[in-house]
């Protein structure tokens, strides 16, 4: 928890004007921290940070190096690379969760951040889904068919499972996107 309860975005950008612009755009919805170098970014990063906007071309330590250090430390954080070059599949391989082409519009930047925060919620929902399935399996293992049919708790569980299944299925198309697909896998692995 942070002082404001707003999600925390860490902006890593060496050009002050650009960093300030991002901060201005984000300040209404997020708590913004800024860093101008890779070293500063690693210093500013703690458990409260939810999303990092990481410029690829930083003086000294590159965006990639910062990312790899941050992953090594096991931070459960979403990282979007901000880049002027078309990154193609590289960014997925490098371990970024998304990328933003420079210079981004306000809409793009806000959308990317919302999207990354939503991914996290989906991870939680899949966990919840498994917990419910597990519970159902336990019930089925312990009771006879007639007992289950007559059990209100079982009915309720079935309803919860069906509702969550619908919700997850409605969201499935996002997995067509390669960075979403790999990102979804990475989120689970990191947040254990």
């Amino acid at each position: 928890m942070t002082a404001t309860d707003e999600p925390v975005v860490l902006v890593v950008e060496d050009e002050p004007d650009v960093g300030e612009t991002y901060e201005l755009w984000l300040a209404g919805d997020y708590e913004v921290r800024r860093a101008a170098t890779g070293t500063e970014a690693l210093e500013a990063l703690d458990e409260d940070v939810d999303v990092v906007l990481l410029d690829r071309m930083l003086p000294g330590m590159s965006g990639e190096a910062v990312l790899s250090e941050l992953r090594d430390r096991g931070h459960d954080v979403q990282v979007a690379m901000v880049t002027a070059v078309d990154p193609d599949f590289d960014i997925v391989e490098m371990g970024f969760d998304a990328y933003v082409t420079k210079p981004p519009t306000r809409e793009t930047l806000l959308e990317t951040i919302t999207d990354l925060l939503e991914r996290r919620e989906r991870t939680d929902r899949v966990r919840e889904y498994r917990a419910l399935l597990s519970k159902r399996a336990a019930l089925e293992g312990g009771k006879s068919g007639t007992e289950l049919v007559e059990s209100d708790a079982y009915d309720e569980l079935e309803e919860q499972i069906a509702a969550l299944e619908d919700e997850l299925e409605a969201d499935e198309d996002r997995l067509l996107d390669d960075s979403e697909f790999v990102g979804a896998l990475r989120d689970f692995e990191e947040s254990d």
């Binding site: 299925e169 499935e172 067509l176 697909f181 896998l185």
Partner: peptide, 18 residues
Amino acid sequence: PDRVFNFLHTVTGRVSAA
């Protein structure tokens, strides 16, 4: 099993979406 479940959920979701 938790991880394998999550992995499978993502992969089967991709299969279904694509």
